[in-house]
């Protein structure tokens, strides 16, 4: 369970996002809608723990009964996906995935990496450089990399917006399916209503910074 308690954002002393509370259940995907500049991406950054210094966040972020606020980003156990896939260009696909696999015996780590590639239909791609992959393939690798770190929750920052239309639909269902299978809470930020998973909860950030259940 990812619990946001009275969290909000302040920019230059003015409230950007007014405090609100939200619980995201395991396996659930909650969508946060808003125009660009409404602060929805910054909200995710605040939850992840790397809000730019110009902004201040308030309220508590609690994950499975642990308060995350004092922890650095790398110890929060929150996976993240962005508009860009941010595959490390100097690493092979395999190295990109291994980068996320926990400290286990080497054979075990390699096996997890191979499994992840199989899961996303990219068997044998491990030694390839990321730039040789198509956009859809890269997105899948990025998702697999985020999941290999075994996050306790995942934050999605418009991850489908840069994909081609036909690809977008399949990537959406691929992503949501994997999140559901893992049973982890997910928070999705978007301005495209089509991104909302079927039956999913939607919150909208209004112009005055308050939130509305849509």
């Amino acid at each position: 369970m990812l619990s946001l308690r009275h969290i909000g954002l302040v920019l230059n002393g003015k409230p950007l996002v007014r405090p609100f509370s939200l619980d995201v259940a395991p396996g659930e995907v909650v969508t946060l809608m808003g125009a660009s500049g409404s602060g929805k991406s910054s909200l995710l950054a605040f939850i992840a723990g790397d809000l730019p210094p110009a902004m201040t966040g308030q309220g508590d972020v609690v994950l499975n009964r642990t308060r995350l606020n004092p922890l650095p980003p790398e110890r929060r156990g929150l996976g993240r996906l962005f508009q860009d896939d941010y595959l490390f260009p100097h690493m092979t696909v395999g190295e990109n995935l291994l980068f996320a696999v926990a400290d286990l015996p080497r054979a075990e780590r390699l096996q997890r990496m191979e499994q992840a590639l199989t899961d996303c239909g990219l068997e044998g791609f491990a030694p390839r450089p990321p730039h040789s992959l198509s956009g859809g393939q890269r997105s899948r690798v990025a998702l697999m990399r985020a999941l290999l770190a075994e996050p306790a929750a995942i934050l999605l920052d418009e991850p489908f917006s840069k994909l081609d239309r036909p690809l977008r639909a399949s990537m959406r269902s691929f992503t949501f399916e994997h999140i559901r299978n893992r049973g982890i809470p997910a928070l999705l930020v978007s301005h495209d209503p089509e991104d909302v998973p079927p039956g999913g909860r939607v919150l909208e950030i209004l112009e005055d910074g308050s939130l509305k259940n849509a």
Binding site: A45, A48, G49, D50, P72, P73, E74, R75, R76, G77, L78, G79, R80, F82, D84, Y86, F88, P89, F99, A100, A102, A142, R145, A146, A149, P151, L155
Partner: peptide, 16 residues
Amino acid sequence: RALDGQVAVARSLGHG
């Protein structure tokens, strides 16, 4: 731009 994003991702993957 590229590094900021990569760093954010890497931290979310558990790297200091």
